[in-house]
Simulated scan of single mutants.
Amino acid sequence: MRYLWLDEYLMNKRGVTKDFQPVWNWIRYHIGGKMFAALCLDDAGKPYYINLKLDPMESEFLRGQYPDILPGYYSDKRCWVSVRPDGAVPDSLLRNMLDQSYGLVLAGQSKKARRAALGLTACGLECAACPLHSKECPGCNQCNGRVFHAPAGKACPLYACAVHKNHRTGCGGCPHLPCALWEQVRDPALSDEAFRASVSARLENWKGVPSNAL
C-alpha cells in the first residue's frame, strides 16, 4: 500500500478509535462508535480497498474522475466509495476524502453525542482531564450544562449560549470567540496568564473538528 501515513493520520483525529473485524478482515476507524473508514485486508493481510463515506454527488463525481475510486465494497454504494490502496489517487485528495468522511459521520450524530465522541465540553474543556470530574461535577454533557459553578437550576452561560441559543455543538467555530461570557465564568483562582492559557487551550481543542460538525 502506498498510503503508509493513513493509520497515523486517522488516529490523530480527535475522538477516533479503531478495531479489527475478523469476519470481514477489516481494520475499522470509528468516531462516536460509528465507522467512517476501513482498511479491507486480504487473507495475507494486504490491503485491497480503503472504504470511506462521501456526499453522494461528490462520490459520483470522483468515481467518474479516478479509475481507482470505486463504488463502496460491501457498503451503501450511493455514499461509500472504495479506493485502491496501490492506485493513483493523489495523497492530498485521499486526505481530503478521509476528512470529509470523518466530518459526515460525526455531523450525523446528535450534538450531545458529538461532544461525547470528541471528549469535549461545550466550551472545549477535556472533561476527563479535569480534577473535579466525577467528584464535584459530572460534566456538562451529562447534566445539560448545569455544572457546579452555574447559577442554581440553570446551565453554564457558555453552554446556554452555544447549545441552547445558537444550536451549536459547542463554542468551536463561533466568530465572537473569546467573548465576554468567558470572563463571566472565569475561575477566580486563575491568574490572568493562566486564564488566557486555559482559553487558548480550549479553543485549540476545537481545531480540527469539521465545520459541519460544529
Rank of each mutant, 00 (worst) to 15 (best):
Q21M: 12
L52G: 10
G145K: 09
R115C: 14
N51M: 11
R196F: 00
G172A: 02
F20M: 06
R14V: 08
S198Y: 04
P56N: 04
G170K: 10
G124S: 05
S198V: 00
E204S: 06
A160E: 08
R84A: 12
G33A: 13
Y9A: 15
P56W: 06
P90E: 04
R84Q: 03
M11E: 10
N51T: 15
Q109C: 05
R115I: 05
C127T: 11
A197Y: 09
C179E: 02
P175Q: 05
M35R: 00
D99N: 15
A155W: 09
S82T: 07
L54Q: 05
D76R: 13
G72A: 03
S75D: 01
D68C: 04
L70T: 09
C161H: 08
C123A: 06
W206Y: 07
A117S: 00
Q100H: 11
Y159Q: 02
V199I: 15
A162W: 00
G64Q: 12
K135A: 13
K13E: 03
K77I: 14
R196M: 09
H176I: 03
A213P: 02
P71H: 07
P188G: 02
I69M: 08
C123F: 01
P131F: 00
W182T: 04
P22R: 05
L190T: 00
T17S: 09
R95T: 03
P138R: 01
T169D: 01
Y48K: 12
V163H: 09
C179P: 02
L52Q: 03
A197H: 03
F195T: 03
Q109D: 05
H133G: 01
E183K: 07
N96H: 15
T121A: 15
F20R: 06
A213V: 06
S101P: 12
D68I: 08
P56G: 11
G172H: 12
K46N: 15
L94W: 04
D91I: 10
S59R: 06
R196V: 06
G87Y: 04
L41V: 07
K154L: 07
Y74H: 15
L39D: 10
S200Q: 11
L94Y: 06
A113G: 03
I50L: 12
M35D: 03
R146M: 13
K112R: 05
W206H: 02
I27N: 11
L62E: 03
C123I: 07
E60R: 13
G124P: 04
L104G: 08
S75Y: 09
R114S: 05
P71G: 04
D91T: 14
R186S: 07
K53V: 09
Q100S: 15
V147N: 13
N12T: 03
F20V: 11
A128R: 12
R2L: 10
R146V: 12
S110E: 05
H133M: 01
V89F: 07
L118I: 09
L214S: 14
A129K: 15
G173W: 15
H149A: 11
A162G: 04
T121I: 03
P188S: 06
P85Y: 11
G87S: 05
R114L: 11
P22V: 08
F20S: 12
M1Y: 06
C123K: 14
K13N: 04
W5F: 13
C79E: 14
